[in-house]
Amino acid sequence: MTLTSASKAPPRTRGDGPPFLMALPALLLFALFALVPMAIVVYLSFTRWDGLGAPSWTGFDNWRTALTSDVTRHALWLTVKLMVVSWVVQTPLSLLLGVFVAGKQRYRALLAVFYFVPLLISTAAIAVIFKNLLDPNFGLGAVLDLPLLNQNWLGDPELAFYAVVFVISWQFLPFHTLLYQAGARQIPASLYEAAAIDGAGRLKQFWHITLPQLRYTIVTSSTLMTVGSLTYFDLVFVLTGGGPGYATRILPLDMYITGFQSNEMGLASAISVVLVLAGLVLSLALVRFSGFSRMRSQQAGM
């Protein structure tokens, strides 16, 4: 037995593997539309280009403008703020909801079915829905004259930011709830039984068993959430268009408006580079401190 299996699985030699050629189409397609653009965007950030003619070299002009522009700085700050606030809002809520619907009762499974609904709607449609739902004249809060909800949600600079956070949470909480539900279901019941024997109450069990056991789920969810927060473009674009004023003009939006509405593609490219760097730094930091590689090896080991 040992003999046959040994003879059947000789150490693979170099020539045995499939040819590199097989990976080439994927690499080429990905390189063409993701890696090559990286190079082009850096080049364009040193040019003046209106999107139609030929780009002309201008050196560091765009960078000087971008780095000193109050609008862009504000956009960067808003992006970070949005990342942090939406994480702070979503993580505890999705964790609690996820753990709750991980329960065995049938009504909880049913709840999860309904929680899932926002994930079926496209971002553009969600933004359109809430744009009308939050309308100061004909929106739900206004017409029903609900005490707290009757506000000019999208017209007030202060409120608009939190309206965006709310809609983002409405859209993405279901996804993270699902992650936590799946995570909580994998916690061995014996841990809770042992804790119950020791007389630990529900809160203690949650604090000392559930939370530590969910740490990889927390890492995964947080990684997706923070990196994903750089991609909230469509939602904000349709919901507020960055307004009122600059109140919700996050970095991707700032780039889009600069490039495709003001036709300053060069300047917009400089903003893109900032965005790419932010994404890379963020991902690397998250991978370093916890995350994705650990998750992969966990999966690969299974």
Partner: peptide, 8 residues
């Protein structure tokens, strides 16, 4: 991030 590449 996908949107960072839209210009190129």
């Amino acid at each position: 991030p996908l949107q960072a590449t839209i210009i190129p």
